[in-house]
Amino acid sequence: MALYQQVTGLEPHPKSDGDFTGLNREDGLVIGFQRVDGYPAPRWPDHRSPTASHLLQGQRGPGGSRGRLLELGAGKPDHQPHELARARVLTDPAGHPFCIVRG
């Protein structure tokens, strides 16, 4: 969750515990993270393993540049489905893929 907190600038949810944590915005938006025992980490681009969500992050957001995301612990998979497109796939430290989109 630390990567997403740095990227979005959102505050930790006040009711976080060992099984649920989240990031929330003043208007009530919450991005939630839930612990699932035995959950297999996704393996991009293998769609047979669950990815649970697909987040898009604009590079103009706080901490949104690819270099900054890599410094924060994101991974850059070899497989990039849209090599010439504006989007690039990165993975969070748990292996969940997300896209960054150039502005």
Rank of each mutant, 00 (worst) to 15 (best):
G18L: 09
P81Y: 08
E83M: 08
G58E: 05
R66M: 11
G63C: 05
R88D: 09
H82Y: 14
D92F: 06
D17W: 02
P40Q: 12
Q59E: 15
Y39F: 14
D46L: 01
L3W: 09
G95Y: 01
V7L: 15
L70N: 01
G18Y: 08
R35D: 06
L90Q: 09
P62K: 15
R68E: 13
P40G: 04
H96D: 05
G64Y: 05
T51H: 03
P40V: 13
A2G: 04
Y39K: 05
G22M: 10
T91L: 13
L56R: 06
G38H: 13
L29D: 09
G22W: 01
R60K: 08
K15E: 15
E71K: 09
S53C: 09
I100L: 08
G95L: 02
R35L: 12
L90C: 10
W44K: 02
K15I: 01
Q57A: 13
Q34T: 11
E83G: 05
G67N: 06
A41L: 04
H13T: 03
A41C: 08
H79S: 12
G63E: 06
N24S: 13
S65H: 06
G38E: 14
H82N: 14
L10D: 00
E83I: 13
A87Q: 11
A41T: 03
S16T: 04
G63P: 07
L90K: 11
G61N: 08
F33K: 00
I31W: 07
D27V: 09
P77H: 04
S53L: 02
Q80E: 10
I100A: 01
G22H: 10
C99R: 01
P81A: 08
K76E: 15
T8Q: 02
E71H: 07
L72S: 07
F98S: 03
Q6K: 15
G18F: 08
G61W: 07
T51W: 00
L29K: 03
R43P: 03
P97I: 01
A52F: 08
I31N: 02
H54M: 14
A74L: 05
P40D: 12
R35C: 02
P40L: 08
A2W: 05
A41H: 03
Q57N: 00
A87G: 11
G38M: 06
D27N: 12
P77D: 06
R43F: 02
R86H: 14
Q6C: 08
G18K: 09
F33N: 05
E83H: 07
R66Y: 00
R43I: 13
R43C: 07
R60I: 04
G32F: 03
K15G: 09
P77C: 10
P50G: 07
G38T: 06
G32V: 04
G58H: 14
H96E: 03
V36D: 02
Q5R: 14
L10K: 04
E11F: 08
F20G: 01
H13N: 05
Q59S: 07
G61S: 14
V89Y: 06
E26M: 09
H54N: 09
G18Q: 13
G73P: 13
K76M: 12
A41N: 05
C99S: 14
L55S: 04
H82S: 08
A52C: 12
P62W: 09
V36E: 14
E71P: 06
L10W: 11
F98N: 00
D37K: 15
D27A: 12
L29M: 15
S53I: 01
A74F: 07
R35T: 13
L69A: 15
H79W: 12
R86K: 15
D46P: 00
H79T: 11
F20R: 03
G64R: 04
